[in-house]
Design a protein around this nucleic acid. Structure first.
Length: 549
RNA sequence: UGGGCUAUAGCCAAGUGGUAAGGCAACGGAUUUUGAUUCCGUCAUGCGCAGGUUCGAAUCCUGCUAGCCCAGCCA
């Protein structure tokens, strides 16, 4: 993966370089630690790219570790989707781990803490614990349970494990400092009782470790050298270090926090995305409008484009909102040389070429990608009747309109010049057909230079055209400044469905094939809804355009 | 004075005492059988603000200001 080394440095790489230079570590170990309670999104991709490529760059390892310490929220379905998404991005993890693999050891470490007088079983209710915790500005109070003997704590904790108590009756707390200015240090809960079936360990356990206790242990057990997480965990770092230290872990992983990704016109929280799914604003977690990895995949984004984007946005500690147009830039960039060019008409308008012989069809040569000649050529039919784009004709055009209008001549891509002579309208005055004449002298490829035209139009020959559905996407969210009422910011026009035509050879297209439709943009064959008789195309991104009507 | 963190262009971001990289966006112009691509050019006398140290400060010091995070038996 040598493509990873062309990006500028960031503060995390600088820390690692320093750690290698000083001999603190010989080998770098990172991990990507998702909780299997939802689908991965583009923000996770930033973390995946960071963790995997940093280890790769410095010759280390990266584990995929599921942080499955809360059976109420987690599910194997998510484990599978997460693995799929990471593989699709093109990364291979070194170890496949589960926090639940370490439940036994975590339990032992908790017992160690109790023996050292650094943890105790709490009798108080959740409400009481909260009251005793104090507030942001006032210190907390010590619980009566805090002074329990080691023996009693040991006994109680074992009975917790054995299922003698119901949910919420007891918790295990670390004994740290109830008056700490950092609330995380005010005797945090490290084990709770939850009589629930775990996707991995079944009913073996009814007590589960909390994140703040489990995570540092998991990292230390795996020998993770740099535990990279997001900014909201910064306040937990003292607790993280406390756990590693007092549980007498051999490895001393270092937690480093970076700012999570925000995108304009996008919501990124799992809660909100889940709401879109549950309330049917979208078609599911992989709806092409969703910022999930699976949504981008179905939309037609390539792994490479997402990785290029993640490398380019950088890694820092300041809150940020990246312009989604930057992501769009990288998919255009990636597909430019890869995607075959083809012509499609999304909103058809029939054109009759009155001086072209009836019943005759000629097959024209067309290059598949003018920027990548190795892709070769294709044949496209041409005849007396074709379809052009509705927006490529105006009866009364404004200045600088280069397309078709009465009396004007334009080029049909790969074919001939045509000139508009007549406009046919229906009873409502709507244009339904255009009559043109063509000039045989102007055939593409013959080197005709007799006269010039300003516009070149795409088109599809009518009798051989294949019907297709086009899904034209716009952002799901109109304005990124959205609070709890973000549903009010939902774009009612995030999806427009058009029914039109594609070239006849497109019948061979398969799910996830990507094309550039001339003058429209890049499209992906929808892998779910495309059938033998109906092609469905998802618009990945439009071509840039300086044209304004 | 609860604690933690952040501040460099419209948006990201490098920069770690030697005179503001790069990308996106935008705007000019050339080429163009995609109003695309490509190419060329423009875009911070300035680094949240105010002082100070220094021959020299985005970088060091002092004091402010603004924004984000923290009171789950979630992660």
């Amino acid at each position: 993966m040598s493509e990873t080394n062309n990006t500028s440095s960031n503060f995390i790489k600088n820390i690692i370089k320093e750690d290698i230079a000083t001999g603190k570590h010989d080998e770098i170990v990172t991990r990507f630690p998702p909780e299997p309670n939802g689908y991965l999104h583009i923000g996770h991709a930033k973390s995946i790219v960071l963790n995997f490529e940093i280890a790769d760059e410095f010759g280390g390892k990266t584990n995929l570790r599921f942080d499955d310490t809360n059976p109420l929220k987690e599910d194997k379905e998510y484990v599978d989707s997460i693995k799929d998404d990471i593989e699709w991005l093109g990364y291979e993890w070194d170890g496949l781990k589960f926090a639940s693999d370490y439940f036994e050891e975590m339990y032992d470490r908790a017992v160690l803490l109790i023996k050292k007088g650094l943890a105790y079983v709490e009798d108080m209710s959740q409400e009481e614990i909260r009251e005793y915790r104090g507030t942001l500005k006032e210190p907390g109070k010590e619980s009566p349970s805090r002074s329990r003997s080691v023996e009693e704590n040991l006994d109680l904790f074992e009975r917790m494990k054995n299922g003698e108590f119901g949910n919420g009756e007891k918790v295990l707390r670390a004994k740290i400092d109830m008056s700490s200015p950092n609330i995380n240090m005010r005797d945090p809960v490290i084990y709770r009782i939850s009589h629930a079936t775990h996707h991995n360990t079944g009913d073996k356990w009814c007590i589960y470790p909390m994140y703040s206790f489990a995570h540092p242990l998991e990292d230390a057990i795996e020998g993770v050298t740099h535990s990279i997480c997001t900014l909201e965990f910064e306040d937990q770092r003292p607790l993280y270090n406390w756990v590693v230290e007092n549980c007498e872990m051999e490895a001393k992983p270092q937690q480093i926090e970076f700012a999570r990704l925000n995108l304009t016109n996008t919501v990124m929280s799992k809660r909100k995305l889940k709401q879109f799914v549950d309330e049917n604003f979208v078609d599911g977690w992989d709806d092409p409008r969703m910022p999930t990895i699976s949504g981008f995949r179905r939309r037609g984004f390539t792994p490479e484009s997402i990785k290029l984007f993640c490398r380019e946005i950088g890694v820092a500690k300041s809150d940020n909102t990246v312009d989604v147009r930057m992501l769009e830039h990288f998919i255009r960039e990636d597909l430019k040389l890869k995607a075959p060019r083809t012509m499609s008409v999304l909103h058809p308008l029939k054109v009759v070429i009155t001086n072209y012989p009836e019943g005759e069809v000629e097959w024209l040569d067309a290059d598949i990608n003018p920027e990548n000649e190795e892709m070769g050529t294709r044949k496209i039919p041409f005849s007396r009747e074709i379809y052009i784009e509705k927006s490529d004709f105006m009866e009364n055009p404004p200045k600088k309109y280069f397309r078709l209008f009465p009396g004007n001549e334009v080029r049909l891509k790969h074919a001939y010049f045509i000139k508009c002579n007549d406009v046919i309208k229906d009873e409502n005055g709507e244009v339904v057909e255009i009559h043109c004449t063509y000039d045989p002298e102007t055939k593409s490829g013959t080197g005709f230079t007799g006269r010039k035209v300003k516009g070149t139009l795409h088109w599809v020959e009518a009798t051989n055209a294949k019907e297709a559905e086009f899904r034209l996407y716009d952002s799901l969210i109109l304005d990124e400044k959205s609070g709890d009422d973000f549903l009010e910011q939902v774009n009612p026009k995030s999806l427009e469905v058009a029914n039109g035509f594609v070239e006849p050879n497109m019948t061979e297209a398969k799910g996830n094939d990507k094309f550039q439709f001339f003058r429209h943009g890049y499209f992906n064959v929808d892998p779910k809804d495309t059938t033998e008789d109906k092609l469905v195309f998802n618009r990945i991104v439009e071509l840039k355009s300086s044209f304004k009507l």
